[in-house]
Nucleic acid binder design. Structure first.
Lengths: 332, 332
DNA sequence: ATGAAAGCGCTAACAG
DNA sequence: CTGTTAGCGCTTTCAT
């Protein structure tokens, strides 16, 4: 069976308590004792029982991470940032994905709370009903939203200036003379969809142009949405000369559709994605997009949650990272 | 503060013990009592303290999942299968990725054991040193390898006939008249690399052909490996007319390189991937590959681990799923 | 069908 | 610097 603190105590002659403290490098234990105990523990193959520890200390060193969409590598890249900071700070993460379901999100929060996590990093569904907001408002532990927001809880968010980024994309395309730009939006249940649409509206407004609702279509943000929505738009003969996409996954699907319809990118149609996924530079042609600092987003979210755990009185403050257009082969 | 069983006991007039049993649908508690208690618990917003429960019962309903590479959606697809079965059976998973580091793998096992998981599903690094094997041999809980294997522990594996699959790819290409096939292998620290290479050797042997070591190059299995290894091979002027890749990620990188070198696929060069990632059908041109039942692999791994938890005496048996060639646009 | 008591392994609180 | 005692919230064991 497994080794307990008591076994190490018996082996070294110290009390269980001293062993416990030596294992945690408590400064009140002499260096010699600490070394002896830790060496013995290692020799005996001691593995601390984390759940017994958290039960007593009310402190699990575990952060619940609620991701949104396991099919989109955007989230893997954010999570790598979260993990990097977590492991640096001696935290572990417990990770699950809602697949954009508010129900699953609320279930996950319950499960995580039952496991006594110290904090939550979430990419929440954009559901601003009181029920959904209460999920977070009622939380007794710190929480941070990574790359997304919820109405009234914006101060918990680390964002990346979606509105600005999308505005710049559309303005750039307008400047280059495009009169009809197809926009493939994301679903309304993602805050970024709303924010990026607002950026699009800004761009048209700044150019004294009206938004043509026929040129805005909406999908779920997956690769197949980009594919079939582009097909549909082409079939309807809408005469657009550029496509701006809510994200890179959609853009990948759009490129596929254009290719199959013998439309050349960027000669016939220019395409812009959003997110700058790692793989986007390897697409054919390589994708012009908006860079979002994904790793940093995760990293900073973890830093922030730790800061709030260590100082529960620390005020929450919205962070907003700048975005940057990345020009590759899908634009001229 | 959070609601405890004791609080529900006070509210209903029953003992803590009865409440505990009613919450778990213990058959010895009357239906009326059970209903009353569960209704009260719901009304009070009770969230069971899972760690207190597992501490006492020695049973966490948590499975540790050790994945290998967060940049490859192969694993996300397997994990979706794992999660589907887990949630169906009332289990939760705690997930982490080794990024193909044996050190990280062993650290993760320790952490997971400390959290008192009931079983492990791993995609282990192909390190057959006694130390690494002991990591698993010494385990007191059930473990299953999903899609990978370790020497001497094959009976813990659920595999997918890599050797056969890769053999069929190479045989197919030979049959179509290719004399020089570039093979971009995966790293030796992944068992699938070894097995797929063996399949390649089988194919050549069956056709009484020698393996040309110059036509086998090795990368880490990421998209950029496919890209730069194809570039290098082209620069060396090796005159191959087909490329078979260890996986789809490599194939994506290879396609990019071929495109940039003005080589047409499949007219000038045919390309085969392996894994049949969801996105591979959306690549341009769409990728011919070998289908691996990823979701099912995860699903069955979870089924299996649960079976072994419920019956610790259950014998371990290697499972081996069939593979299937998928012909798309990168082959003629 | 229900209750009382004990204890899982650890750490906090207090003592010295 | 180290030891003793108690208790985290639950479930097991034993009793009725």
């Amino acid at each position: 069976m497994s080794i307990l603190l008591k076994d190490i105590a018996n082996a070294t002659g110290f009390s269980t308590n001293t062993v416990s403290r030596a294992m945690r490098n408590d400064s009140k234990i002499s260096e010699a004792t600490t070394e002896l105990i830790q060496a013995t523990a290692k020799k005996m193959g001691y593995i601390p029982n984390t759940i017994a520890s958290s039960m007593r200390s009310n402190y699990s060193k575990m952060i619940g991470v609620i991701s949104a969409d396991s099919a989109n590598t955007f989230f893997s890249e954010v999570i790598r940032g979260i993990e990097a900071m977590a492991s640096k700070a001696g935290y572990h993460i417990i990770l699950a994905s809602t697949e954009e379901s508010a129900k699953k999100e609320s279930d996950l929060i319950r499960v995580f709370l039952g496991r006594k996590i110290d904090g939550i990093i979430a990419m929440p569904v954009f559901d601003n009903s009181p029920n959904h907001l209460d999920l977070y408002r009622n939380l007794e532990i710190p929480y941070i939203f990574a790359g997304r927001r919820l109405d009234g809880l914006e101060n918990h968010s680390i964002l990346h200036n979606d509105r600005n980024g999308q505005r710049k994309v559309i303005e750039h395309l307008i400047e280059k003379g495009h009169k009809k730009i197809l926009y493939i939006a994301g679903p309304k249940k993602i805050s970024n969809s709303t924010d990026r649409l607002a950026g699009l509206a800004d761009a048209y407004a700044n150019n004294s142009m009206d938004v043509d609702p026929d040129l805005i279509v909406e999908g779920l943000g997956h690769i197949e949405d980009g594919y079939y929505l582009t097909n549909q738009a082409l079939n309807r003969g809408m005469g657009f000369t550029a496509i701006a996409c809510f994200n890179d996954m959609i853009a990948m699907g759009a490129l596929k559709s254009l290719y199959e319809n013998n439309l050349h990118v960027p000669q016939d149609i220019e395409v812009f994605g959003y997110d700058n996924l790692y793989m986007s530079q390897f697409m054919q042609p390589s994708l012009s997009t908006v860079d979002v600092p994904k790793f940093r987003l995760g990293y900073v979210a973890m830093e922030s949650i730790i800061a709030h755990i260590q100082d529960p009185k620390l005020a929450y403050e919205t962070k907003d990272f700048p975005t940057r257009l990345v020009f590759r082969e899908t634009t001229r």
